[in-house]
């Protein structure tokens, strides 16, 4: 990460997004920092409710005008996004920074044709006529591999299949050649072949336009396939982050171990049950004291005393560019990791 900091496109520091609700303050994102260089891809993983979508929406300023409390700093190409007036932020939205939303059926307007919605994204940032914008939309649909784009242009989202809607979302996000693309679970609920096609598409587009990509996913396979760096989130925190190779080959803490263990892989024969992390995600209103993962952690016995329960671990560097939030001693980690590699699992 160090050498990239020279050319940083996006820099997020100590981001917090809190929602006041009747039940209390929901701390969905609670002190998150990461940065991203042009042409690179960051994968954000973590189980449902860990704050992935909330983070990505914060970058686009989509919490403005709601009750959400956003703090920290987000700078995009040197511009502080959190302090930017909405009017100016709007010029970046969809133009410099674009987003592919989770669940394209509900993210597309049911009453407008797909073509019109893509064309609108183009027209907002370019002074062109309707016809020109539609031509551009057709071009994009073609680019993302929708057959008969000229005809499909005039269809409504409900007439598209799941995979095609996902492609349409991508076309809409890419219509202005954004410098940062945020893809929130772009392949969830798609079958494996379509999933592979879409990832391939994103890689191709990145090569073509040199965009930076944030890809949010539950699926570590997607991260391994497409990302350079990875950020593992748990209960609004980063618990481990670094280069994909480092994190995947030398994971340093129990939650990441669990995630990796639950990942389907070639050597894991089909039909065999995947390991899952026992327990359920913690409350974001009153998160567990100490390490937020401790109620579900199988390794906290290896930490001396009750540090896991009483004191919150801080993110610490284990090797250059590899950060981990865990009390375990380096020696213990190495031992556990060694056992895992030996196939104890």
């Amino acid at each position: 990460m160090t050498e990239q900091q020279a050319r940083t496109l996006l820099d997020v520091r100590d981001l917090r997004v809190h929602f006041p609700t009747a039940d209390g303050l929901v701390r969905s994102v609670d002190g998150l920092s990461f940065s991203l260089a042009p042409g690179r891809t960051l994968g954000i993983v973590g189980e449902s409710g860990s704050g992935k979508s909330v983070t990505s929406q914060a970058i686009l300023g989509l919490h403005r005008g709601t009750r959400a409390q956003v703090s920290g700093s987000i700078s995009f190409d040197g511009v502080d996004l959190l302090g930017l007036p909405t009017r100016e932020l709007r010029r970046l939205r969809g133009n410099e920074i674009a987003m592919i939303f989770q669940d394209p059926l509900s993210a597309l307007h049911p009453y407008y044709t797909v073509g019109r919605q893509i064309a609108e994204a183009y027209r907002v940032h370019h002074s062109v006529g309707k016809r020109q914008a539609l031509a551009r939309a057709e071009e994009m649909l073609d680019l993302v591999g929708i057959p008969n784009a000229g005809r499909r242009l005039h269809e409504y989202p409900h007439q598209f299949s799941g995979g095609m809607r996902q492609r349409a979302m991508i076309a809409m996000a890419l219509v202005n050649d954004p410098r940062l693309l945020i893809a929130d679970e772009p392949t969830t609920a798609l079958d494996v072949t379509v999933q592979a096609q879409i990832l391939e598409l994103m890689k191709k587009l990145q090569q073509e336009f040199g965009s930076a990509i944030i890809v949010i996913t539950h699926d570590l396979g997607v991260v391994a396939d497409i990302a350079d760096d990875v950020l593992v989130m748990y209960a609004g925190h980063a618990v481990e982050q670094g280069a994909v190779a480092d994190v995947f080959y030398r994971p340093q803490m129990p939650y990441t171990w669990g995630l990796l263990a639950s990942m389907p892989r070639v050597e894991n024969p089909r039909g065999q049950r995947l390991a899952t992390i026992a327990g359920s995600p913690p409350s974001l209103i009153a998160p567990p004291a100490g390490c937020r993962f401790h109620p579900r952690c199988a390794y906290r016995g290896l930490v001396e005393g009750d540090a896991c329960v009483t004191s919150a671990p801080q993110l610490a560097t284990t090797e250059p560019g590899h950060l981990v939030r865990c009390h375990l001693e380096a020696a213990e980690r190495a031992r556990v990791l060694g056992n895992m590699k030996d196939g104890v699992r």
């Binding site: 989509l62 969809g94 509900s106 307007h109 009453y111 609108e120 994204a121 907002v124 809409m172």
Partner: peptide, 29 residues
């Protein structure tokens, strides 16, 4: 509070158009 309104905002659509073109079209039908 629908997702497609958020999409419109994420595209950079001005607020008046988000309301008139996207929200009212769906809410008033």
């Amino acid at each position: 509070s629908e997702d497609y309104i958020r999409t419109a905002r994420a595209k950079g659509v001005p607020e008046w158009a988000v309301i008139a073109r996207h929200a009212m079209r769906a809410a008033l039908t």
